[in-house]
Design a protein around this nucleic acid. Structure first.
Lengths: 322, 322
DNA sequence: CTGAAAGCGCTTACAG
DNA sequence: CTGAAAGCGCTTACAG
């Protein structure tokens, strides 16, 4: 050991993985994308990319996708995962109660895990990879405050079924209000929040219209998730071009509305990068035996018509061989 | 060959580099940072990071830094680089005429090279890694247009000695004007440009003040490079808090002014990522024999007080062993 | 429990 | 020019 120290010996990972034919198996438990290009298709892209980069090191990845509509789907897939022998797990703790049960089992078996997208505190996670929703809310507040005349009011719209299960959205709203509270000169801006609950319904124009009417003199709208395109559709139909619109996530529909100047800003969180990072973090922990950061917040990107094209391609500086 | 095709044989890079003890030497020719935390210190961080990741593959990197003040320094360092036997070169073509001479020599010796930061067309480069300055200018235009009342005017300030050697700044200015030209309802916004030429002088308050006076009713200022802190200093001193300020690059001084709400937006181009990517691109070309993209534009990030903290750390999803 | 041998999938100098 | 042998820096089954 003294000589190792003296010579600053670094083992050769290439030789090591070549010699030991050991295989590392990773399990990934994430929501199923609601459609082909929906949000949860993005982390998968990053996960596949990471797999390409590190499969040479003997890594195998198995994906378990659960439907987001009911916690029972989560439990089912979690049970499936536990039947296999995995060396590490990536987990989106979408349903917090069920996730806690699942985590306990991972801990019993001493399987290391990382969270992606959402976090659960007081767990023995290796790392959390995701966004800071509160801060992204303050950012939305600033952007609307800058873009909307001082005497006009702004409207926050949640498109969500059960708000208490949607911690991200709550955090974003809290951050939004906080921006106005923290201003040097306290803001007298009129802010209203509405919830549009029925995700299945195609009749979202009516509640949007009602919300705008009720708030009065609305010149800015913040939609707390990716369904901002619904409001864009409404504004475009009635040609309400003096209302500034901010939403989340660079999905194709939103992109088109940004291009047509109907959505002014999209706030994004690099889901591909998150997927990629979740696998790489496990790889670093398991194979490279490195210590990894216990929290890994991805950047909060502001996307407009002008810089949109430079956020299209996912590039992780891949130097894998495939 | 037929069997290779049939079995979809993929050579094992690990085994290959382990067996062949060949060393790849890379030369990097970039400007010397003007101070410890100045712009050109950032790409170096990414370059070092990339080195850590790939040194196991037998990569050596030698850095040649030239003073930005005179082309003769560039020529000197370029000559030094050519004396060594390098297998690939990263080059910031800061002085275009001298760079073209240098490139010709690289081409004669069949040494592949990538550009970083600036591009030279019609060259046999492997890749260009950098920003799109014109688009970042249109973005600055939009942000100021949104933040400044319609009847107020905006001011563009160049801090630069020789504008004809500063293609980035020219492009940014052109993009800025173009935003207003391309608007659906043509903008009647009054825009003025001034150049503050003497970089050594500490007396920049006078020309800034003169510029603002001359333009009249200025409520927004766009500084085309990282020296936006000079204007922030001026605005803070005279407590001109109703003037919106946009500039470039996340250097420490600018960061502080963003925190204090004196700079409203910084437009950034991820210099560390550019440095990292330049080395990885050569690595992919030389060692992995992959084809690389001939153009690699980094994102144009918008940084505000609210998302600043999530752009601090350079994270390339490193999975190197050091 | 210890230590030498075989082997991971390649490259390269060398014998024929 | 071709092909078998040695070796890159490790791991792991195995003999002692």
């Amino acid at each position: 050991m003294q000589i190792i120290e003296e010579l600053d010996y670094q083992p050769n990972i290439l030789a090591s993985t070549l010699a030991s034919k050991r295989v590392y198996s990773l399990g990934v438990l994430i929501p199923e994308p609601q459609s082909e290009e929906a949000y949860w298709s993005k982390p998968l892209i990053g996960i596949r990319q990471a797999f390409n980069e590190i499969q040479q090191y003997g890594v195998e990845i198995k994906i378990y996708q659960f439907k987001q509509t009911d916690a029972s789907f989560f439990k089912e897939k979690a049970a499936e995962l536990l039947k296999e022998q995995h060396d590490g797990v990536v987990l989106a703790p979408f349903f917090s109660r069920e996730s806690k049960v699942f985590i306990k089992k991972l801990e019993e078996r001493e399987i290391p895990f990382v969270f992606i997208d959402s976090n659960i505190n007081d767990s023995s996670k290796i790392s959390y990879i995701g966004q800071n929703s509160f801060q992204s809310g303050t950012l939305a507040g600033k952007l609307l405050d800058f873009s909307v005349p001082e005497d006009a009011s702004v409207l926050i719209i949640h498109f969500a079924k059960e708000m208490d299960n949607q911690n991200h959205l709550v955090q974003r709203e809290m951050g939004f209000y906080d921006y106005f509270k923290q201003k040097e000169t306290p803001s007298k801006r009129h802010i209203t929040t509405i919830e549009i609950n029925d995700p299945a319904s195609n009749d979202y124009f009516a509640p949007i219209e009602a919300g705008i009417k009720k708030a009065g003199n609305v010149k800015g709208i913040f939609v707390t998730n990716s369904q901002v395109y619904k409001v864009a559709e409404y504004l475009e139909k009635y040609n309400l071009r003096d209302i500034r619109l901010i939403g989340h996530d660079l999905i194709p529909t939103n992109r088109d509305y940004v291009r047509r100047n109907m959505v002014d800003f999209l706030i994004c969180q690099r889901p591909e990068e998150q997927g990629h990072q979740s696998i790489i973090t496990l790889f670093q922990h398991l194979i490279l035996k490195k210590t990894v950061a216990s929290e890994n917040y991805t950047s909060i990107d502001i996307i407009t018509k002008e810089n949109l094209d430079f956020y299209q391609e996912f590039n992780t500086n891949n130097y894998g061989t495939n």
